[in-house]
Design a binder for these strands. Structure first.
Lengths: 230, 230
DNA sequence: CGGGATATTGATTGATTTCAATGTGAGTGG
DNA sequence: CCACTCACATTGAAATCAATCAATATCCCG
């Protein structure tokens, strides 16, 4: 598998990013263009959407399901840069080839638009250009936040940060439905699956969370998690 | 090897970033605007240029010297996101407040321009908007590359990646003059200073590098380092 | 030529990984 | 509907890499 990437962060709602500049009315020019121009494409669980090193011809938006973007080292070690949830843009990168691999975590539907179309649209329409920048700058902010976790946080802190981050964009404020496997979480957080598993068990034993099933986590004590969020 | 920024970002020559779109003539519209409009400001070694959480009123370009941008955890653990060298843009972020602290590593001179001016310029001039996006997308690419190092690389691999990345943008292809301390390197690579020091010594004992003085490193065997670059 | 900051080196500890079973759950076919 | 199976997850024990604790050593500065 190859990889490339685009936006990172976590599950960031790319379209919700804010401009630093007063451009309120134009905030959705790019997003709207996507909705108008985008064609729909479905992918099965684990299918590759694009691979690292491939020409980056299209830009994507998650319609339903979840997508991971990751990079591999030559010996197979993997770093997931971001999980993309519905509404998130991915595949928008500097350069002509994807720096990441994008894969479907669950069955997903994406919208896609030719990159060249996005770019020429941006060249003509300042509002589009502005939102285009915002989406990228927001991804950068999340990437930086994640660097802090990877470089300086303990396993417990990384898990706590991850859980709170996911919960933020969940309907049910307290119960998180994870679309991704433990391995995905491990590769996102720079840990082994065993450490992820052990740390979740530990947090459960401390009554910070509850694990009703593999893919479902109930946050019982946000304060405890926030404290770990350093 | 070319001047690809592979690494860690840093020191990236922001103005040299490539668009994915044919926009050759406009590549320096933003950079040029900076040169025209920017006011000069000097900072002493270790002086703070701006602090995390402060309103992000200006955008900066390094004129001379080196700058680090970093984030702190509440207990003082620090992650340096990037080192900025002459020509690099920094301080350009999503949102109205800085997500980082920027400090002078050595005595530095920076150019700065009001963010609002940059933004309205971009709104009017597609070439500026395009380069603005490129600069940010390029920073994102480096951040992602660095995430891979922080999440998945060993100490030796991180150091090798770091050295090759810095050497890429050095005049003298073989001898690297480090503007930053071991502590800065450690906080950039997510290691302790002792591990940085030990790893450099190890690489020296393997004849991959030579350490004529604290701040100077000679690369004696790039292949050995590249092998570690995974 | 000192002196403090910065860096190296050594010894030890400790968090996380790795290796190794065991457990659990969802899907399939009888 | 149940049994089987395979992928995924948990748990345990041992090994390992890097952090921490602790002295020196070196460099740059005045």
């Amino acid at each position: 598998m190859r990889k490339q990437e685009t936006i990172s962060g976590t599950i960031g709602n790319a379209s919700g990013s804010k401009l630093g500049i007063p451009a309120p009315a134009s905030r959705r020019a790019f997003t709207d263009a996507f909705s108008m121009l985008g064609a729909t494409l479905p992918f099965r669980r684990n299918a590759e959407i694009y691979g690292e090193g491939e020409p980056s011809e299209y830009v994507y938006r998650v319609q339903s399901g979840a997508v991971r973007t990751s990079k591999l080292l030559s010996d197979g070690r993997r770093q997931i840069g971001a999980f993309h949830m519905p509404g998130d843009i991915f595949g928008l990168e500097a350069g002509d080839t994807h720096q990441f691999t994008a894969e479907a975590i669950s069955d997903v539907t994406v919208l896609f638009v030719k990159r060249s179309i996005i770019m020429s649209l941006a060249a003509r329409d300042g509002a589009v250009a502005s939102e285009l920048w915002s989406v990228t700058a927001d991804a950068l902010r999340r990437a930086h936040e994640h660097m802090l976790a990877l470089g300086r946080k303990s396993a417990q802190e990384r898990i706590a940060t991850f859980l709170l981050g996911i919960a933020e964009r969940t309907e049910d404020y307290d119960t998180v439905e994870l679309p991704m496997s433990r391995l995905d979480i491990a590769d996102y957080l720079g840990l082994s699956i065993e450490t992820v598993s052990r740390t979740l068990s530990l947090l459960e034993s401390e009554a910070a969370i509850e694990l009703p099933s593999f893919r479902r986590i109930r946050l019982r004590n946000r304060d405890a998690l926030s404290r770990l969020n350093a």
